[in-house]
C-alpha cells in the first residue's frame, strides 16, 4: 500500500512538471494553432534567470520568490519578441512555424552556451524545500516535489480564473472558439494573440524556475521536456485546459507505474504506445471544442 501511494505520488509529481510545461503550450497551441518549439528554450531562460538572481541576491529562498515573477516576465518578453518577429507572419502555415521556431531554439541554446558556458550550472534550493515530509500512512514526500505540485495547481487555478473572469480571458476564449467571429465583434485579435503568447511563454519561464529545484540547468534542458509536453497537449485536446491537466497527471502516473514495473526506457515506449492507441479512440484529443468548420 505504501509502495502504491509512493508510486502514485511520484507519478503525480512527474505530472506536475509536465503540466507546468504544457500549460503555456496548451494556451498558445490552442489559440493560434502554432507549434512553438522554442518553448523549451523559454523554460531554459526561466531556469537561467533563477540562476542569475541567485548569484546576485544570494539568499536561496528570496531569490526563488523573486525569480518567479522575473522569469515569467523574461520568458514572456522573449515569447512576444518571437511572436512579433516571426510567428505572426506564419499563421497560415502552422507546420512551417514548427520548423522556424526550432531554428530559433537552436540559436537560443547556442546563446545560452555562449553566455553561461556549456557545462550545466546548479542553484541551491532553499532550506525549506530540501527535506522530506512524512504524510500519515508512512509515506514520505520530498518538499521540492510538493512545492512544484503546489505551483502547478496554483498556475492552473490562476489561469482558469483569468480565462473565466477577466475581460482579457473572455477575449482569449472568444478568439479560440471562433477567430473570425471574434474579429468582427471588435476584438483586436492580433493584440489578443500577443498577450496570449506573453502569458503562455511566461508560464514556461515559471516552469523553468520550478525545474531548478529538481536538477541542473543546462542549454538543452528544454528539449527533453518539450516533446512530452506536446504529447500532453495533443492528447488533451486543444482549446481548453482541463484536457491538458488530466492528461499530464495520467501520463505522469503511467510513466511512474511503467518505470516501477519495468525500466525507464520501456516505460517511455509504453507511454508512446498508449498515446497512439488513445488517438485511435479520440484522434482530436480528450476534449475537443466542437466547431462546424471542415478541416
Amino acid at each position: 500500500m505504501t509502495v502504491l501511494f509512493g508510486q502514485l505520488f511520484t507519478g503525480v509529481s512527474i505530472g506536475a512538471v509536465l503540466l507546468l510545461v504544457a500549460l503555456g503550450l496548451a494556451l498558445t497551441f490552442g489559440q493560434m494553432n502554432v507549434i512553438n518549439m522554442a518553448h523549451g528554450e523559454f523554460i531554459m531562460a526561466g531556469a537561467y534567470t533563477t540562476y542569475v538572481l541567485q548569484q546576485t541576491i544570494t539568499s536561496a529562498g528570496w531569490s526563488l520568490l523573486v525569480a518567479l515573477p522575473v522569469a515569467f516576465a523574461v520568458a514572456g518578453a522573449l515569447g512576444v519578441l518571437l511572436e512579433v518577429l516571426l510567428i505572426r507572419r506564419l499563421y497560415a502555415r502552422p507546420l512551417d512555424t514548427l520548423l522556424v521556431t526550432w531554428g530559433v531554439s537552436l540559436m537560443l541554446q547556442q546563446a545560452a552556451r555562449d553566455i553561461f558556458g556549456s557545462p550545466n550550472v546548479q542553484t541551491r534550493a532553499p532550506a525549506l524545500l530540501t527535506g522530506n515530509v512524512a504524510l500519515p500512512g508512512g509515506i514520505t514526500v520530498a518538499n521540492n516535489r510538493l512545492f512544484i505540485l503546489g505551483l502547478a495547481v496554483a498556475a492552473v487555478v490562476a489561469l482558469t480564473l483569468a480565462l473565466r473572469l477577466t475581460p482579457l480571458g473572455r477575449r482569449i476564449r472568444a478568439v479560440v472558439q471562433n477567430r473570425d467571429l471574434a474579429a468582427v465583434s471588435g476584438i483586436a485579435t492580433a493584440r489578443v494573440d500577443r498577450t496570449t503568447f506573453f502569458v503562455g511563454s511566461g508560464l514556461a519561464g515559471v516552469a523553468g524556475v520550478a525545474l531548478t529545484l529538481l536538477g541542473p540547468i543546462g542549454p538543452t534542458m528544454g528539449t527533453n521536456l518539450i516533446i512530452d509536453a506536446f504529447l500532453v497537449v495533443v492528447v488533451g485536446g486543444i482549446g481548453q485546459l482541463k484536457g491538458s491537466v488530466i492528461v499530464a497527471f495520467a501520463l505522469g502516473v503511467l510513466q511512474a507505474t511503467g518505470e516501477y514495473l519495468t525500466t525507464l526506457s520501456v516505460a517511455k515506449v509504453i507511454v508512446f504506445v498508449a498515446i497512439v492507441a488513445f488517438l485511435q479512440w479520440r484522434p482530436q484529443g480528450l476534449f475537443t471544442l466542437r466547431t462546424r468548420s471542415l478541416a
Binding site: F29, N33, I35, P94, L95, L98, I227, F230, L231, V234, L264, S265, V266, K268, V269, V271, F272, I275, V276, L279, Q280, P283, A295
Partner: peptide
C-alpha cells in the same frame, strides 16, 4: 484516424525520442 498536420509531426518526433530512449 485523420491525425494530421502538427499532431502527426509531434507523434513522429515522439517516436524518435522513444526509439533513442529504448
Amino acid at each position: 484516424r485523420r491525425v494530421r498536420g502538427a499532431y502527426f509531426a509531434i507523434l513522429s518526433q515522439a517516436l524518435a525520442a522513444a526509439m533513442v530512449i529504448l
